Simulated assay, not measured.
Amino acid sequence: MNSTIPTIASDTSAAEILRIGIETASGPVSLACSFSMEDVAIIDIAHQAGLNLGVFALDTGRLNEETYEVADALVERYRLKIDWYFPRHDDVENLERADGLFSFRESLDKRHQCCAIRKVEPLSRALKGLSGWVTGMRREQAVTRGDLPPVEVDELNGGLLKINPLLAWTEEQLLAYTEEQRLPRNRLYSQGYRSIGCAPCTRAVKPGEDARAGRWWWENPENKECGLHRR
C-alpha cells in the first residue's frame, strides 16, 4: 500500500475522494457498512462510478431488525456480496455470564469492553488483507469528528488507508441524495433516529440535538465512539 496521503481539495466530490483513496491504497479496499444512510449512499456512489469496493459488516448480536432489512435490500438491489463478521462467541458468553446483559451502562470502561468484544476485535479480522477501508463518517455528526480528513493513515490498524468520502456532507445533502436515488433506508430514521448502532445503545434524538446524541446517551459527547474510529 502507498501510505502517502494525497492532497485533496475541499470541494472534491465524494465519488472523487473515493476514487483517489482506492487508487492510493493500491490494493483491496472495503466499506465498513453499518447500513446507515451514509453507508448506503457510498455503496450507490461506488456502484455508479464503477469502483471496485468491497463491503463488510459487523454483526454485534445486538442489531435492530430494521438494520437487517436494509442489508437484505442492498443485496437484492446491487447483487451485493457482504462479508459478515461476528464477535467470538466465547468472549460474549464470558462477558454476559460475568457482568450481565447491560454492563455497558455501568461505566465507560465496561462500555468500551463490550464494544471491544462486539466491534473492535471483529473489525481487526475484517481488515486483514486489506490495503484500505472506507467509512461513512461526517464532520457534522459529532464533536469527535469535527476535524475529519478525507483520507488518512490508520496507524491503529496497521497503517491502512482510511477513506472518509462523505466527511463534508450535511445531513440535508445526505437526505436529498438518498431520496433522489430512492435508496433503501432504515425504518428507524422515520421514528426520530439519526444514528443507528446496537439496539440497547441507540435511541431517537430530541429536536436540536446532534446526530449522535442518541448513541450512548448516558455518556458525555466527547466519549461517544465505540473504538472503531479512535484517532
Results as ranks from 00 to 15, higher is better:
Gly159His: 12
Gly50Asp: 07
Arg111Gly: 14
Lys110Phe: 11
Leu156Val: 05
Asp11Arg: 00
Ala57Arg: 04
Gly197Phe: 09
Asp109Arg: 10
Arg19Ala: 14
Ala57Met: 15
His229Ser: 01
Glu96Pro: 10
Tyr78Pro: 05
Pro207Gly: 01
Val151Phe: 03
Gly21His: 03
Cys226Trp: 15
Leu127Val: 13
Pro165Gly: 03
Val40Glu: 07
Lys81Gln: 15
Glu76Ala: 14
Glu38Arg: 13
Glu222Lys: 08
Arg105Lys: 12
Glu66Trp: 06
Ala49Ser: 06
Tyr85Asn: 02
Trp218Ser: 06
Glu76Trp: 06
Gln173Leu: 10
Asp147Met: 04
Arg111Val: 09
Gly54Asp: 14
Thr202Met: 06
Glu225Ala: 12
Asp109Thr: 07
Arg230Leu: 15
Ala32Asn: 03
Leu101Val: 15
Cys226Pro: 04
Ser13Phe: 04
Asp83Glu: 11
Ala49His: 01
Tyr85Pro: 03
Gln113Tyr: 11
Glu69Ala: 13
Pro122Cys: 13
Glu16Met: 09
Arg230Tyr: 10
Glu222Arg: 12
Thr60Trp: 11
Ser13Pro: 01
Gly227Arg: 11
Leu156Asn: 12
Asp210Arg: 08
Glu155Ile: 10
Trp217Gln: 10
Glu121Tyr: 15
Lys110Thr: 12
Arg187Ser: 08
Thr202Gln: 14
Glu16Asp: 04
Met137Asn: 13
Arg230Cys: 11
Leu51Lys: 02
Leu74Cys: 07
Ala142Pro: 08
Glu180Trp: 13
Leu74Val: 08
Leu161His: 00
Gly146Val: 07
Thr4Met: 11
Ala14Cys: 02
Pro184Gly: 00
Trp133Lys: 01
Ser107Pro: 02
Arg125Asp: 06
